[in-house]
Amino acid sequence: MSRNGKSPGGGPRNRSLRHGNGGVLPGRNRRAAAVFLLPPLLVYLATVAFPIGESLFLSFFQWDGITRMKFIGLDNYRQLLTIDSTFRSAAVHSLVYLAVNLVIQLGGALLVANALTYLRRGQDTLRVLYLLPAVLSTVAIALLFQRVYSAEPEGVINQVLGAVGLGDLSRPWLSDVHTALVAVSVPEGWRFMGLYTVILLAGLLTVPREVEEAARLDGASETRIFFQIRLPHLRPVWLTTLVMATTYGLRGFDVPYLLTNGGPGVSTELLTTYMYKTAFTSTDYGYSSAISVFIVAECVVAVGIIVALLRRRGEALL
């Protein structure tokens, strides 16, 4: 405390010290920093950081959880990358799942958010109503969509198709190998589209009115205003939403697991569901850990690419 009395204006020495440790509180408070940091850090280490390390460690072993662990080096990875065809399909399916979700959650949300800016009123109410599906649990969503997709008894989609004269297209959407993967990807997109609509709308509303008005007076079309004024203005919001949507898309699990559990065949198997089954159905902890490590690497690389693409030099992350 004595230091504070000495330099109320924040002397150069004090400032440089502050700059070095990142805080804004004057003076050094090592013990207080430890008191405040340790509880959250310990919980985080125990439940997130340490398990990730443990996965990496386990991935070099063959272990069923009961018998003695056997060190096998890189064999799990070798099997994963060269032999295992299910893994390869699952990796591709995960990317399709991600793509479907990005199109619905970001593409769809951007269209809707842009449309909302043209409304004079009702924006607040609509935002709330759009968010409603995010409140549903994935189990409830799975139950709901089971009845949406089903053929026998006739589900909602087939019913609608029949009503508009497209009855030929009706099929059991979840057990048809050609449609199952997209069918299990859509519910998650539907669930969170409202969330991204709200976020993107908030970004769109910060576009300076005068700039748009000036463009309109100069005869710019709404399409042009969208592409040349609004979209560039949203860039920092894209960074956050893309990272969010991508990481959430890559961890997608619940809806495919509950709706089809990977089937028919392996046509809706994602990396996450495959890992889960390897761990808890085949109890092959080592191999499932290798899949886990692959998923982590995939997420880190994906986020790295997004940040590298969208970040401008000297800009802070997130």
Binding site: R18, G20, N21, G22, G23, V24, L25, N29, R30, A32, A33, F36, L37, L41, Y44, T47, V48, A49, F50, P51, I52, E54, S55, L58, V243, T247, L250, R251, F253, T272, M275, Y276, A279, F280, Y285, S288, S289, S292, V293, I295, V296, C299, V300, V303, L317, L318
Partner: peptide
């Protein structure tokens, strides 16, 4: 607010948790 020497490093460690999917922690 308080700040300490390796705060950037710790922050980076925390940010990793935003990126990593929850499934990887299940087996451990």
């Amino acid at each position: 607010v308080i700040g300490f020497r390796f705060s950037r490093l710790v922050l980076g460690l925390f940010l990793l948790g935003i990126v990593v999917p929850v499934q990887v922690a299940l087996v451990p």
